[in-house]
Design a protein around this nucleic acid. Structure first.
Length: 664
RNA sequence: GCCGGGUUAGCUCAGUCGGUAGAGCACUGCUCUUGUAAAGCAGAUGUCGUCGGUUCGAUCCCGACACCCGGCUCCA
């Protein structure tokens, strides 16, 4: 056996090391800072512990703690520390799985005797975790046979179940869990910290608990064992962990910021919308100020769509069951519909989507190819019976208004029309300052084909057209198996808010199926009847979700064109009221949303109230302004006021800002 | 829908070992007449989420339900 080995580094160079050298040794031989930052290695494409000996000739790279892979290792190791702490504090507790997730980790537990964690327990667990970290416990990898593994975890039923997965593993697909949890191909791997604590795990892990420490436990939640609502419900403890205190603090700051930007909180503070149990769960009431935002968005979309060749239609909120049986919503999606209303012995349903009604609009007249494409737009109110636990403010409501339209065109034009819709999305997003978005192409799940209607040729054609259009759009996208609509592939636009949270803004589909189902037809150039293609699109999604998103994205600071109150005028003292009134009237006549704030409170207090309401412009007018025909301009976000601005100059600034839909 | 935690004034929250309750902000009135992020005084405000049970007595204990929050599941 040679006493030297040679490994290849990511840059293609090779490096000689003594036999038995590890990734840690490799990192140390390259540099001290790399050695310090290293948390694991990748050997021939597999993640390994720093302490694992390197095989001769391997391709090796070092995972550092600032990479997402490195953080995942830290988080995974931290989850083991948490499990150890919990098992020590609650003897007899059962532990299930504890993977790293985005920004942190969790672990699922079942406490003995029906006990459950409380928020105070998080501090106890965390305190014990800090002791474990201070104890500098090693993570030592062990490999066992299946039988040894079953013995080792004999009192841990969830671990036993995972290991049993291995029995079938030799031939069958065990699913991801068995693999990530350390039971693969007849070998059970585990990581031991002390005589008393060992956890089933694939690894890799940091060499010692002292490598950890920048973590915090965040919240408790419930989770089903293996995500199956028929299986036992466990208690999940979520935490976050980072490579440095600075990163941890920044993440905690982001969480605080997310709370401040919570659209439900802002909606209340800014008087935008409300819910009332007597109206019904998930049924938002738009207050006057919130309605301004909705209306402005809608007016803009209406004008934009007029220019882009859409026509408006209006359809009822309900329809007979017959319509939804044709569309396939009944009986397939019956659970998601509000219960039927009996009218003269016939069943009527609140519409969950606008498309069936729009198809009937199309069908109301005969069409020639010369008229196509026909683009029917409607801000249609739809109602869906969302599960109560899924409701989330405006983001997931049971009644909402879609910025909806359906485009009827020939298959030959479908790609170009689809592309135009994507351009329209990009246009809207750019105007609103949404600069981080991508698309997801949801295809049908090949393992579960009976869920989908229509034949293979149709699906293939729809997929091809969709993918071609996406390619041509230049907008980044990913593909995802499963998740298609029952009638065709689906494109979701995912938009990311200023604090990095992602939302599915809208779903767009190229649909070759419903036209057959509804027997929609047009006469082509050869005088032959043909089915059109249909594009379902809603760039602004639902007004509810979109305004909720914008609330978070802007932190409530709506650009002036959308702001419920655009300008407040504050006379310094009662003597200046008449002048202030004149300024207000002028702005009002020009169509702005403006308020006079009487001088019955000190100026500072009135300024403060306006700022808290996030009013873009607070104008202060006093004796000096009366003399010069000026206003004192307080622009939202600016530290200092801009004094003695001629009123005409201010109005021009306001006009330009609103006309261009400027962000600030 | 499932599990856990909640629900006290418009909002944020305190409190009652079971004897029907309080603060700050907001609100109303009066005074102050203010040049850039909280003027002063006074006042009013609650079925203590709803219904039922236990009790001499329930906001408090028990049960059911409603709603909210965190997740899970779901999401045309």
């Amino acid at each position: 056996m040679a006493d030297q080995i040679s490994v290849t580094l990511p840059d293609g160079s090779s490096k000689g090391l003594p036999a038995g050298a590890t990734t840690a040794d490799l990192a140390a031989s390259i540099g001290r800072s790399l050695a310090k930052a290293a948390v694991a290695g990748v050997v021939n494409g597999h993640e390994v512990d720093l302490t694992a000996p390197l095989p001769d000739g391997a391709e090796v790279s070092v995972i550092t703690d600032t990479s997402e892979e490195g953080r995942a290792v830290l988080r995974h190791s931290t989850s083991h520390v948490m499990a150890q702490a919990v098992l020590q504090l609650w003897p007899g507790a059962k532990f299930a799985i504890g993977p790293p997730v985005k920004d942190g980790f969790y672990y699922d537990f079942e406490l003995p005797d029906g006990q459950h964690f409380t928020d105070e327990d998080l501090e106890r667990i965390e305190a014990r975790m800090r002791e474990i970290v201070a104890e500098d416990q090693p993570f030592v990898r062990e490999e066992h046979s299946v039988d040894e593994g079953l013995e080792l975890f004999a009192d841990q039923p969830f671990k036993v179940e995972i290991i049993h997965g291995v029995r079938e593993a030799d031939t069958a697909d065990t699913g991801d869990m068995a693999a990530t949890e350390g039971a693969e191909a007849g070998v059970v791997s585990a990581y031991r910290n002390t005589d008393r604590f060992v956890d089933l795990c694939r690894g890799p892990h940091v060499p010692s608990t002292k490598r950890l420490g920048h973590f915090k436990l965040l919240n408790l939640a419930a989770a089903y064992w293996r995500g199956d609502e028929k299986r036992p419900q466990l208690q999940r403890v979520y935490g976050t962990a980072w490579e440095s205190k600075a990163q941890l603090d920044e993440h905690l700051w982001r969480l605080e910021e997310a709370k401040k930007r919570d659209h439900r909180k802002l909606g209340e503070e800014l008087d935008l919308f409300a819910f009332d149990p007597d109206v019904g769960r998930g049924l938002p009431l738009w207050l006057p100020k919130g309605t301004v935002i909705r209306d402005e968005l809608e007016a803009w979309a209406r004008e934009t769509e007029r220019r882009w060749g859409y026509q408006r239609v209006v359809t009822p909120h309900i329809a007979r069951g017959a319509l939804f049986r044709t569309s396939g919503h009944l009986p397939y999606y019956q659970e998601d519909l509000y219960a039927p209303i009996d009218i003269d012995g016939d069943d009527y349903y609140l519409k969950p989507m606008n498309c069936p009604h729009h198809h009937m609009v199309f069908k109301a007249r005969a069409h020639s190819y010369r008229e196509l494409p026909l683009r029917y737009a409607e801000y249609g109110n739809v109602y869906r019976y969302e599960k109560s636990g899924a409701l989330f403010g405006l983001m997931r409501a049971r009644g909402f208004t879609q910025n909806d339209a359906h485009i009827y065109c020939s298959k030959a034009d479908a790609k170009e029309e689809f592309l135009a819709v994507m351009r329209l999305h990009a246009y809207y997003y750019e105007a609103l300052g949404i600069d981080d978005f991508h698309m997801v192409l949801a295809l049908k799940d090949p393992k579960n084909t009976e869920k989908y209607h229509g034949d293979d040729d149709m699906w293939e054609e729809a997929e091809r057209l969709t993918r071609d259009a996406m390619e041509e759009s230049g907008i980044p996208y990913v593909e995802e198996l499963g998740g298609a609509a029952h009638y065709g592939p689906k494109v979701d636009f995912i938009i990311r808010s200023a604090i990095g949270r992602e939302f599915a803004a809208s779903t767009n589909q190229l649909d070759l199926y419903m036209p057959e189902r509804f027997d929609l037809r047009f006469t082509n150039a050869h005088g032959v009847q043909e089915h059109p293609a249909v594009i379902h699109r809603a760039p602004l999604g639902s007004h509810e979700r979109f305004v909720g998103f914008l609330l978070e994205h802007y932190a409530g600071n709506f650009p002036t064109w959308l702001a419920p109150v655009q300008v407040q005028v504050l006379p310094v003292a009662a003597d200046h009221r008449e002048y202030a009134r004149g300024v207000v009237d002028r702005l009002f006549d020009d169509g702005y949303r403006v308020e006079l704030v009487e001088a019955d409170e000190p100026l500072g207090a009135r300024i403060r109230h306006g700022k808290l309401q996030k009013v873009p412009y607070i104008l202060v007018v006093g004796g000096q302004d009366i003399e010069g025909g000026t206003v004192g301009v307080n622009h939202r976000g600016d530290e200092r006021p801009d004094r003695d601005v001629p009123i005409d100059e201010f109005i021009e600034r306001l006009r330009a800002e609103v006309a261009t839909k400027a962000r600030w």
